[in-house]
Simulated assay, not measured.
Amino acid sequence: MATTQISETGAPLEPVGVEGCATCTALAESRQIAREVDDLPAVAHCNVQIRNHPHRRSSDWRTVAEQRVWGVAL
């Protein structure tokens, strides 16, 4: 799960994505581009997406035989 850094004053800073996650990397790049063009709603949206992006432990993943899509085994 993404973490949120805390400033010296105790105020939360932007969330930091998980290293090596392509989704977190893409969102961080989008956030930087949005910041460069002063699109603050887009920056906030990227922060929410990074914060809410799920990361599971390898033990949480089901084997291919156990995976189901809409109740149908893959």
Rank of each mutant, 00 (worst) to 15 (best):
A34L: 00
A44E: 08
R35Q: 05
H53V: 00
P41F: 11
V72G: 08
T23W: 05
C24G: 15
I33M: 12
E66L: 06
Q5L: 13
H55E: 07
S30N: 11
T9R: 02
P54S: 08
I50K: 02
R62S: 15
V18S: 05
V48D: 04
A42L: 06
V43T: 10
R31S: 00
V64Q: 09
T3G: 09
T4W: 05
D60P: 01
E36W: 06
A2H: 01
A2L: 04
A26E: 02
A26Y: 03
E8R: 08
T23C: 04
R51K: 13
L13Q: 14
R62E: 12
V69Y: 14
L74W: 12
G17I: 00
V64P: 04
A73K: 15
I50Q: 03
R68S: 13
Q32M: 10
E29N: 09
V16Q: 07
V69Q: 15
A65Q: 09
W61M: 13
L74N: 12
R56H: 13
P54V: 01
G71R: 06
A2C: 03
V43K: 03
R35L: 09
D38I: 13
Q5W: 09
V43W: 02
R51P: 01
W61F: 06
S30Q: 08
L40G: 15
V69A: 14
G71M: 13
V69E: 14
A28P: 01
A65M: 09
C46L: 04
G10Q: 03
W61Y: 13
A22S: 14
A42S: 12
T63Y: 09
C21I: 07
E14S: 15
V37C: 03
V64I: 15
S7D: 13
C21A: 11
D39M: 03
R35K: 14
C24E: 05
V43N: 04
T25P: 05
P54W: 03
D39C: 10
G17N: 02
C21V: 14
R51F: 09
A11H: 07
R51N: 03
V16D: 01
A22N: 07
R56F: 14
N47H: 03
G10S: 06
R51I: 02
L27Y: 00
R68C: 15
V72T: 15
P54M: 05
E19K: 07
G10H: 02
A34E: 04
G71D: 15
S30M: 14
G17K: 00
H53D: 03
G10K: 01
P15E: 01
S7G: 10
A2N: 00
C21E: 03
G17W: 02
T25M: 15
A22W: 09
E8H: 08
L27C: 01
H55P: 01
I6Q: 04
S58N: 12
Q67V: 14
P41T: 09
G71F: 12
C21F: 11
R56Q: 15
